[in-house]
């Protein structure tokens, strides 16, 4: 904030001095009023430390240690990891599964949320409730329950393609929330009615009017879904698929602690790239939303 003294500088002669005098009194008094929000900054700082210290430690560890020839490791652990064919195969398996999860959940969720908004608005509370279920449903319970059922479909059960079908359930809250929020913002009912009045069919209207508006919500939800599917450990490990997190865990159990932290850093970076992209998209979305409001 600009200080009153600076403001007074620009004023000529007497007026400037008089204002400055008043300002100084105001300044002295203000000490008692807008206090520096000490506690707010304390909690923000505490949260920042809580967030950063483990990340810092992890990164430090992944660059740490000394090699047999006495040199410090630097990127050594990362390079070692990249050279491991098991790393590459598990990574690509996870990426593939994550893509399939995104595709499958979009296919399932986008039409459903649209339908609920357009035709069954009274189902929204049910959807809201259902969408918190995966937050609290233990993945391990789901696996335990699914195993006997899936054994009836051996062609699927033995292949890693079974994972996306299960991950869709856990991606549901994130995708639902972001699409739902996106639809809330654009008043779907009015838009589609206006479009129908102008002669477009409902679904033609959706394709041309609504989907572009919803792009950032869908991309955001997809990124989250991707990150979740990429990092899922419980189900993959219990169904004995060697995905990326399972591989990290396996390395971590062995003597190669530095490699394990390097892998964790890679996994962390992946999630963060997704989140950073989300931030950029979210900001773009907000700007367009604001444009709609201001005259």
């Amino acid at each position: 904030m600009t200080t009153p003294a600076v403001l007074a500088d620009g004023l000529p002669g007497d007026v400037g001095r008089k204002r400055a005098a008043i300002s100084r009194r105001g300044q002295a008094r203000r000490g008692g009023r807008t206090r520096f929000p000490l506690w707010s900054w304390f909690w923000i700082g505490f949260a920042a430390l809580y967030f950063l210290v483990p990340v810092f430690s992890l990164v430090q560890f992944s660059f740490g240690g000394t090699l047999a020839n006495g040199r410090s490791a630097g990127f050594h652990w990362f390079l070692a990891v990249f050279d491991d064919p098991a790393f590459r195969s598990s990574f690509w398996l996870s990426a593939q599964i994550a893509f399939e999860t995104v595709a499958l959940s979009l296919l399932l969720m986008v039409p459903t949320v649209f339908w609920v908004h357009l035709r069954l608005p009274r189902l929204k509370p049910v959807m809201d409730f259902v969408s918190v279920l995966p937050f609290v449903v233990p993945p391990i319970v789901l696996v335990v329950g699914l195993e006997p059922f899936l054994q009836n479909f051996t062609w699927l059960y033995s292949r890693p393609e079974v994972l996306p079908f299960i991950y869709v359930v856990f991606a549901l809250p994130f995708l639902y929330r972001s699409i739902d929020a996106g639809l809330r913002a654009i008043d779907l009912r009015t838009l589609s009615e206006a479009a129908s009045n102008l002669g477009a069919s409902t679904f033609g209207a959706l394709a041309r009017v609504v989907l572009p508006n919803l792009r950032s919500a869908v991309i955001g939800g997809s990124l989250l879904t991707f990150a979740i599917a990429m990092g899922e450990y419980t189900i993959a490990s219990l169904l004995l698929f060697n995905t990326f997190p399972v591989y990290i865990f396996y390395i971590g159990q062995g003597p190669a602690a530095h490699e394990a932290t390097a892998l964790s850093v890679i996994s962390l970076l992946l999630t963060w790239i997704a989140m950073a992209a989300l931030f950029v998209i979210g900001r773009g979305g907000r700007e367009t939303a604001q444009l709609g409001v201001t005259k």
Binding site: L58, G231, P245, T271, G282
Partner: peptide, 20 residues
Amino acid sequence: TFSGMASNFAGVPLAFAFSA
């Protein structure tokens, strides 16, 4: 954004981060 990052930072990598 940081909350989004941290709330999704769970599982094996988080365990290793706290070990470190």
